[in-house]
Design a protein around this nucleic acid. Structure first.
Lengths: 184, 184
DNA sequence: GTCTATATTCCGATAGAC
DNA sequence: GTCTATCGGAATATAGAC
């Protein structure tokens, strides 16, 4: 992997493991095997690096949405779950949750990138919930957008809470969401 | 208010506004009108201050639980909502959500205090959900503990997401949770 | 593109006077 | 209990050699 990609990848890991304000250029430099000044060559400021992380994740999620556009709503739900499963396995939190708590300390360019990223996820989930309801696979009574916020919020929060409480609760929450959606 | 209390109060505000790793003793000293060394007199280390913040919130929530022990489950639910309503009004996030994302950077004493705090809330919510189900006021099919995690997670996440998306979603989410619980 | 060297700022923490 | 003064360290960032 090219150094530039590796830097973004490690920054991503650190943001979701320790938070944006808790990792340093030195943390990354150490792991890549270069000096901090070399990171500044690729990303003049920490803000530039932060924006690059979000844009990388946005590209990833956009490609995944596109690739699985023809899947069933239930399959899409499980793809959605699998994202958080990986995060939880690594004892991390999701990018949105991590950066939302640091939001007031972030430069506007990161704030805007994050808003765009979260909107992409929200629209995706809203879409396959609507789809599932139309096909009588999913059942829920509130607006699809609100149901999407509830479900996204459940996953966003359970990866955070998994650090504080019983590890097994993650799967129980996942199953409860699924059962609730499929119940007629 | 005594300086010591004021320091804890401001630290609490900062943690929920900007995050634990983004506020400094100087931020607080400035607002109190003292020097940073005076804060160290009351709280030798930042960790001591962090623990004091959680213990203050724990005392507050414990008193509130006790005070409203005789309320109906529906009243308790609305008290629960009102906590997050205040947080959202201030454009802050809850203490658990904020410190959970910074969890890996916190000293063990703060981690343990936070675990105790989150468990207190979880047990409280689980309790009045069970109560409400027994009285046929609330309706849900999963375990009360899991339902509590889902609802707490919805509120924890919506105060975070309120910074990124439509401000009005907070009330929609609150109403959706309520309707879901009350539906027969 | 990476290095050395350094500038600058900030932060947590401590010693000792008052 | 608050102050001044200061230490030691860490962080972002830049200049210039290679």
């Amino acid at each position: 992997m090219k150094p530039k990609e590796q830097i973004v990848d490690l920054a991503d890991q650190y943001i979701r493991a320790k938070g944006y304000n808790a990792f340093s250029f030195y943390d990354i430099a150490k792991e890549v095997g270069i000096k901090t000044s070399s990171i500044h060559y690729h990303f003049p400021s920490k803000t530039d690096l932060g924006v690059a992380v979000i844009e990388k994740e946005l590209a990833f999620i956009t490609a995944m949405i596109q690739k699985n556009a023809d899947c069933s709503p239930l399959e899409k739900l499980n793809i959605f779950f699998s994202i958080y499963h990986k995060i939880k396995e690594a004892n991390q939190v999701c990018l949105v949750g991590s950066l939302a708590t640091d939001f007031m300390t972030l430069d506007e360019s990161i704030q805007n990138a994050l808003k765009k990223f979260s909107l992409t996820i929200l629209n995706w989930v809203t879409g396959f919930l609507e789809e599932g309801k139309r096909e009588n696979v999913f059942n829920f009574s509130c607006q699809p957008r609100i149901k999407a916020l509830l479900i996204i919020g459940n996953m966003l929060s359970i990866v955070q809470l998994s650090r504080l409480i019983d590890d097994a609760d993650f799967n129980s929450v996942k199953k409860a969401i699924q059962k609730d959606l499929l119940n007629q």
